[in-house]
């Protein structure tokens, strides 16, 4: 497509009850989907609501549904996704739409709390540091899970979240897996208990839609399978 041909963009307007509105935006070289949304808000309709911050794939705030797939829009090139020279941009699935492309993220982060995805220290700041070898299996497992940018793309891709809204979901469970693998944590079994509770990791059907769409290459299915195994082992040991 030549850069000046322009592109037809359908954008979701309104809340849960809404409709698509069609805009025309100019095409530029190396243009991202976020560039298009920003152009529309600045040049065509300033009432368009959407979120972004870093524009370089770090903050995780710009995720939207682009031509049916959840994506980080600031790192998604239009040339890669515009099928037939058209874009359809909608808010993320499995979250409540506030307005246009902005969703209520609170329930998503609530799930991180429920999955006990935080560090609980066993010692105080006055104690000597606990060494963790970069080569240890736990540290490697945590490494593979830890670069999550909280974008909720996997949460939007997951059908189990769509089926039961209270399912902790891939992002929170992936975080719990990183927490479980932190050997400095004071109560690691509590992570397994929280992640394996009702609406927890046992609900995952291993569709791998989360892993398929995570923009930073994290594999939540792998993390959830790890939680299932660790939970089962703890159960058999009588520790859970």
């Amino acid at each position: 497509m030549s850069p000046d041909a322009g592109i037809e963009v359908r954008i979701w307007r309104g809340g849960a009850q809404g409709r698509y509105e069609t805009f025309r935006a100019p095409r530029r070289e190396n243009q991202t989907v976020l560039d298009i949304v920003t152009w529309i808000q600045r040049e065509a309709d300033p009432t368009l609501a959407y979120r972004f911050a870093c524009r370089v794939g770090v903050c995780g705030s710009c995720a939207m549904t682009v031509n049916g797939k959840p994506r980080w829009t600031c790192r998604t090139h239009v040339s890669k996704v515009a099928s037939g020279g058209r874009l359809t941009i909608a808010p993320l699935r499995n979250l409540t739409v506030i307005k246009d492309l902005a969703c209520e993220m609170t329930p998503f982060f609530e799930k991180w709390r429920r999955a006990r995805g935080r560090f609980e220290a066993a010692i105080s700041r006055d104690d000597p540091l606990v060494p963790v070898s970069p080569e240890s299996p736990e540290r490697r497992a945590a490494d593979a899970a830890i670069e999550c940018i909280n974008c909720a793309v996997c949460h939007a891709a997951c059908d189990v979240v769509a089926w039961r809204g209270d399912y902790l979901g891939p992002a929170a469970l992936n975080r719990a897996w990183a927490a479980w693998n932190d050997v400095r944590d004071g109560d690691r079994t509590a992570v397994l208990a929280a992640a394996g509770a009702e609406a927890g990791c046992g609900n995952c059907h291993s569709h791998q839609s989360c892993a398929e769409h995570c923009p930073v290459g994290i594999n939540p299915t792998r993390s959830i399978a790890g939680l299932k195994r660790a939970g089962l082992a703890a159960l058999l040991r009588g520790a859970l």
């Binding site: 549904t65 049916g68 797939k69 939007a156 291993s206 569709h207 791998q208 839609s209 892993a211 398929e212």
Partner: peptide, 13 residues
């Protein structure tokens, strides 16, 4: 099949 579901893991499911 919806675009986000069009991958081997979902077909297998």
């Amino acid at each position: 099949i919806r675009p986000a579901r069009n991958h081997p893991g979902y077909w297998a499911f």
